[in-house]
């Protein structure tokens, strides 16, 4: 069973499409959720949730699932998976400090939903009416690629017909201090779909999901996927220490060097950038890698370019 990528959404400072992401060399400005979503209903939503809603709107629109404010497939069959490690860390830390300073009388009840880490995934479901399995993946550096793996698994097991997979990370004083530097303050999203479902509704195919692994170390993961992939890998995406152990002779892309700490958004931003590359003419499968030898695990996933349109029978 093939799993296709039928939607891509990008919400990064200065990049709001896969093409812009693939060509970007540095962040410009910041993502303005109110400009994309309208101000209504955003007031008490935390930054990560707002970024997730922007990526969600863009990916559902790109996939042709959301038109003029209406979902045009069965919402009961659409799964939502969101990857974010830092999402609500600011709320938890800020609330704990307020309690120490003022007691619970100093708290705003409007913070209550944001105290639960799955707020991004549930708000995406609410905004777009998505009743399928709803999963918040908070799994460290590999989290974004892990979310793609679980999205594909929910489709393979027949629990959903489409999976909306989003990775976002917010920037604020608290998470900057936690990770030791600026955070991307954005993310990206994909819609995954079984090939026959995509074909049945005439969806545009941006890419195909190949193999995935989660093992100890990026080199081992890359080698296993390279060995299992029918065509030779033509490039890779990896950041920091993980990039240092991958084949130097192939083109490599370190997106954290451009966007800052991507954390749980990394895998989705890598996938969106790779798809931007496919659209610009890149040929051959690429390997996305997240998590280094210093981390608890390294996730890797192959993304294949869409198959070229079937050639017409030659005239005889």
């Amino acid at each position: 069973m093939s799993i296709f990528v039928t939607g891509v959404g990008v919400a990064l400072p200065g990049a709001d499409t896969a093409a812009a992401l693939a060509a970007a060399v540095s962040p410009v400005g910041s993502v303005d959720p109110a400009a994309v979503l309208g101000k209504k209903g955003l007031r008490y939503k935390d930054r990560a949730t707002q970024l997730g809603l922007v990526a969600g709107l863009r990916v559902l629109t790109d996939a042709g699932l959301w038109r003029d404010g209406v979902l045009n497939v069965d919402g009961n069959r659409v799964a939502v998976l969101v990857s974010s490690n830092l999402g609500n860390v600011d709320t938890a830390c800020r609330v704990a400090r307020t309690i120490a300073d003022e007691g619970t009388r100093g708290l705003s009840p409007m913070d209550t939903p944001n105290a639960s880490s799955n707020i991004i995934a549930s708000e995406v479901a609410i905004r777009f009416g998505l009743h399928g399995p709803n999963l918040m993946v908070c799994n460290g550096p590999g989290s974004g690629l892990d979310a793609l793996r679980w999205g594909a698994a929910l489709l393979r097991s027949g629990r959903a017909d489409q999976a909306v997979v989003i990775g976002v990370e917010p920037d604020n004083e608290i998470v900057r201090e936690l990770v030791g530097g600026p955070v991307a303050d954005g993310g990206a999203a994909l819609v995954l779909e079984r090939s026959e479902a995509a074909e049945a509704r005439g969806a545009t195919v941006h890419a195909e999901i190949g193999g995935h692994v989660r093992v100890a170390g990026p080199a081992a993961g890359y080698e296993r996927l390279a060995a299992g992939e029918p065509a030779p890998l033509t490039g890779w995406f990896a950041s920091g220490a993980a990039a240092e152990v991958l084949p130097a002779e192939l083109p490599g892309h370190d997106l954290s060097a451009i966007w800052g700490e991507l954390s749980g958004a990394l895998g989705l931003v890598q996938a969106a950038a790779a798809i931007g590359g496919f659209a610009a003419g890149a040929r051959g499968p690429v390997c996305l890698v997240a998590g280094s030898d210093d981390d608890d695990g390294s996730a890797a996933l192959v993304l294949r370019p869409p198959a070229p349109a079937a050639p017409r029978p030659a005239a005889v």
Binding site: S116, S117, M136, V137, C138, G140, V215, S263, D296, G297
Partner: peptide, 27 residues
């Protein structure tokens, strides 16, 4: 405290040797 311990994979890898762990924050 560091971000590598917000999820449980780091401790599970140290204690049980498994790299294939998944922390789902689903309320």
């Amino acid at each position: 405290f560091g971000p590598e311990r917000l999820h449980f994979g780091t401790a599970l890898r140290e204690r049980f040797g498994t790299p294939d762990t998944h922390t789902f924050s689903n309320a």
